[in-house]
Design a protein around this nucleic acid. Sequence first.
DNA 1: CATGAATGAGCGTTCATTCAT
DNA 2: TATGAATGAACGCTCATTCAT
Lengths: 207, 207, 207, 207
Amino acid sequence: MKAENKHAKIIVAATKVFAKKGFFTARISDIAKEAKVADGTIYLYFNNKYDILLSVFQEEIGRIIEKTTRLLEQEEDPEQMLVIYASQHLLAMKKNRHLAEVIQIELRQPNKLIKEYRDTAFSKYTGIIAEIIKKGQASKVFRPDIKPALAARLFFGALDEVSRVWNSSLETHYSVHEVTDQLLTVFLRGVFHPVDEPQLLRKKSTE
Amino acid sequence: MKAENKHAKIIVAATKVFAKKGFFTARISDIAKEAKVADGTIYLYFNNKYDILLSVFQEEIGRIIEKTTRLLEQEEDPEQMLVIYASQHLLAMKKNRHLAEVIQIELRQPNKLIKEYRDTAFSKYTGIIAEIIKKGQASKVFRPDIKPALAARLFFGALDEVSRVWNSSLETHYSVHEVTDQLLTVFLRGVFHPVDEPQLLRKKSTE
Amino acid sequence: MKAENKHAKIIVAATKVFAKKGFFTARISDIAKEAKVADGTIYLYFNNKYDILLSVFQEEIGRIIEKTTRLLEQEEDPEQMLVIYASQHLLAMKKNRHLAEVIQIELRQPNKLIKEYRDTAFSKYTGIIAEIIKKGQASKVFRPDIKPALAARLFFGALDEVSRVWNSSLETHYSVHEVTDQLLTVFLRGVFHPVDEPQLLRKKSTE
Amino acid sequence: MKAENKHAKIIVAATKVFAKKGFFTARISDIAKEAKVADGTIYLYFNNKYDILLSVFQEEIGRIIEKTTRLLEQEEDPEQMLVIYASQHLLAMKKNRHLAEVIQIELRQPNKLIKEYRDTAFSKYTGIIAEIIKKGQASKVFRPDIKPALAARLFFGALDEVSRVWNSSLETHYSVHEVTDQLLTVFLRGVFHPVDEPQLLRKKSTE
DNA sequence: CATGAATGAGCGTTCATTCAT
DNA sequence: TATGAATGAACGCTCATTCAT
């Protein structure tokens, strides 16, 4: 249990330090100090500096993927599935703002191991979006002229970018619901003004 | 003129090397070798390693900003302005794939100078999007319930993410027009199936 | 008694590990694992890493010195004394091949404590050789033009070197008797061919 | 030429430092200070710490091997060949006392690369001795009952051991000639007193 | 006595930067 | 201007040693 604690403490500390200074600028001693352990202790739990970063990804994102996957299994409606996906992601990012930074910055590194993680475990997570879109197209809810893979990238790119609003000093007042709503509104209906009566009505009724 | 050449050669080489290895993993000697100059020569044109990265941003992105700004001045229609913005950005990224990588990865660094650039010059570039959206809302073309700043982030996040399709080995076949079209379709009209009678009915039933 | 066991187990394990990896490359944890005790346990029996090495010398070589000394006390003939010295040393080295390695490698270290051991206890052991030579010269059996100290070094250098034949994968077939014989033949009579009658006769009579 | 100098300076400094402190206890900064260069400079000429040690062996011993080999080519008499071998070795060791220490201590390391060197280049050097002995046996000058490989080890072990007399504070007064003479006398004729007339005569005639 | 998790001093090595040529 | 050899500060990591259990 004690060991369990140290491992977790180091992960949390590393996430914080990586977020603040970036992986390369972060020193092992920074992480150790933040975790209140000796430098050497870190090497009892991790093989090297990169292993810490990978563990942050695997464990922290792993938890998000797991929860999101579980919630999505109970939902059939593609629109609602996107709502769940986005809100879960934003919720997690708001709760763990450091992780949001780390995902944005470090997950893109052209490092071999990071790339490998991105191309396997993480791509499963983003791949979910494409699946939802395909499902929506199959049930004729979503436009058939949208390319699922491309739209998934658009969606995740947007989601990833807005997930950092809570790290910005200016925009912290947003609620998860608010951001999810804006993202989904744009993604589902677009920014064009709903011009005709039926649209206006429908729109009102959905809000 | 010769100096001019060296400066440009180093910028090009640095962009390539940064894209491939990342800023921190890239060595000055890598850039020097790529630019076919001596290590020391780099310091005749740049103050330090970060200065090279900043120059890449300022000059390469500066050129894009300039051109985009110029083209946008000749356009009044908000929809068309977004088309121009997106297609210009994607065109530039397709032409200079290394730059696309560098923007995605290095521009997010929590480094003081990078942050400063991001918060000043670069935020003017992304700020253009918010302006266009406001303009569209003023002329009642865009929905009034969209928050310009948030929507701008969504838009840029999506644009930034898809701008790397040409770096992916699998998706290089997309044309700029195609990607712009997908992005704009989603952003302007959403992924929901276009609403003619039969659809409206079905759609209502699913909501 | 149990403690006695642990002490001895650690000495044996350390000798093995030092022989295989060398003193500096050997880790305390290697020795602990080999001795099947915990790392910390080693420090209940030894002050530090160097103390283990010194103990290996003092105890293992001490035993050899003791036995050799005892046997030599019962012998008067200088030639036979050299035979005893060499055969005892080789016998011990063949029995404990790890110790042979450790003596060859680690006893030469320019470390203060090792040096001290080498200059006191161990030099008594090699000093025996010089004493035997002097005795042989006194009784006119050995040539008077031989310098005892130098000859002792020659003898021990040769003995030390050949004592490792059993660690070499190629030469393990030698018997202790065989090696002793070769060493003594050379040392006592030299490699020159015994050309004339008297030599041949004398040689036979000494065997 | 300047580079040539640095390389040589580092080799000399490293030999000195290795001799004094031993390979493992020696610090790169010790060598750098001794060579009057910066720590980093060492890595312009050598790949790592072990590479320095191997270079010491290859270059310094290489020179000795070369010279000895050259001199031996001009000699036919086995006895004289041994004289040349021993005197050349001792001469080199007296000139470069640090090298004598390094050979004695570090060449025996159970390190993979060192072992490789010992088993190839260096074993050629010691192998020369066995060749000389075989030659002496073929021409009936040396006893036929001596095993060349074993005798070579005896010879080199003795030579190696006495080669350090000049490092000992007590025995520095010996001349190379004196030590060579003692070694060869013992090795060729043994320590036994030359007892009868014919021996005395033969001995004189060979000198 | 025994354990092994925790410590932190210490070193090999890298690489941005300088400067004599 | 251009070079690239030289510099030395800085850091990841190891491992002998300690000590709470």
